[in-house]
Computed example of a mutant assay.
Amino acid sequence: MENINHPLLNWIPIKLIEKDNEIYFEWLYLADLKYDDPFFDETIAKCKSHTYNSKPFKAVSILENLRDWSNELISVELKSLVFHVSRCGSTMLSQSLATSSENIMISEAPIIDQILRSDHFSWDEKTLLIKSVIKLLGQKRFPEQQHLIIKLDAWHIFNVDYLRSIFPETPFALLYRNPIEVLKSHQKMAGMHMIPNLLPSDVFGITAVEINEISFQQYRVLVLEKYFQGFLDFYDIDQNVVRLNYNEGMKNVIEKFISYIKVDYGATELDKMYERLKKHSKNDNAIFTGDSYKDEDLQIDFKKLIALYKKWDNEFITS
């Protein structure tokens, strides 16, 4: 294999570090660990105990190192970026795809979010960094690996135009679900992006005035409105997009996604993907019996959200 003798094989950048007004990148050694956890930070946590990663001094580099080293390693082809509205089957999609030995499935890598939200770089520097990081994360570490798929954080829909400028030919996927079900899921346990000010409100295009005028619960509705509007805006101008609806069933989602990215998996690989659907997305030791929110009552105004969802769904039906 091309990378077998390269000293950076199995090393990946995982974090930005700011020190003395300079930016550095922390690196992590993966050994033979594959990206098969529900979220990328879980994979990072597993690697922390490795001898190379538990030393008092961390492995760090500068921006120029990242660029140069990424060009020295062979990476697999980027097949798709997956955008989603949260609690819509994105983790199940990524977990199913991760079962294939042909795939490198990266699920919400923190370093990609750090770069996208950083104020320390020009747009040209960000572009260089995003490309370099993705190449390094997607380095070919095992002979059978052929396809790189990246699931982004939900709020990265607001970076979709910029990401399209970087990857003009890459198929993008927009995964969604009935927003009432999404809200009821967050009512049981809210994700960080659904809690005001855990992420800067300007990430979502939400002003401080808007936050002060609405309730904690209504904030979640506003975030979802922004997501669906972002989906609508991008879909209006971009044709290299596949729309994936959780409510049509995850097997249908997987089949449609695979067809769109034009990957011909063998029967064994497909069987593993479909078998994974029987387990809980975040715990492959637990059987998935479906989720239901019939008893959850939402004391909020979601008329605008439903209108956006119906507009999105109508475009889906008629397109």
Rank of each mutant, 00 (worst) to 15 (best):
V242I: 09
S259L: 13
D119M: 07
L73A: 03
L163A: 04
A109K: 05
Y176H: 14
Y162H: 12
S165G: 07
I206R: 05
T170P: 00
L137H: 02
K310H: 15
H147D: 10
K303W: 02
G249Y: 08
A31S: 14
Q187P: 04
N178D: 12
R67H: 06
F288K: 09
Y235V: 15
I261N: 05
N10H: 08
F228A: 00
P168M: 12
Q229D: 10
D37T: 12
H84K: 13
P7F: 04
W123G: 11
L277V: 14
M273S: 02
L148P: 01
A286Y: 11
R117F: 06
I258W: 02
I317Q: 13
L198S: 13
I180C: 07
S259V: 12
L244K: 13
W11R: 15
L183G: 00
V253G: 00
N240Q: 15
S132M: 02
Q187R: 14
A307N: 14
L308P: 00
D236M: 09
N53L: 13
F204M: 04
V253F: 02
A307E: 14
G230Q: 01
F216M: 15
E144R: 08
L30Y: 01
E255C: 09
N5L: 09
L129K: 07
T170N: 01
I300G: 03
H120K: 08
L81T: 01
N71L: 12
R67G: 00
L199A: 03
I180F: 03
C47E: 04
S185V: 10
T91M: 12
I195E: 06
H84T: 10
F172P: 01
T99F: 01
N285L: 14
P110W: 02
G290D: 04
P143G: 05
Q95T: 07
N178Y: 13
F257A: 08
S185A: 07
R164L: 11
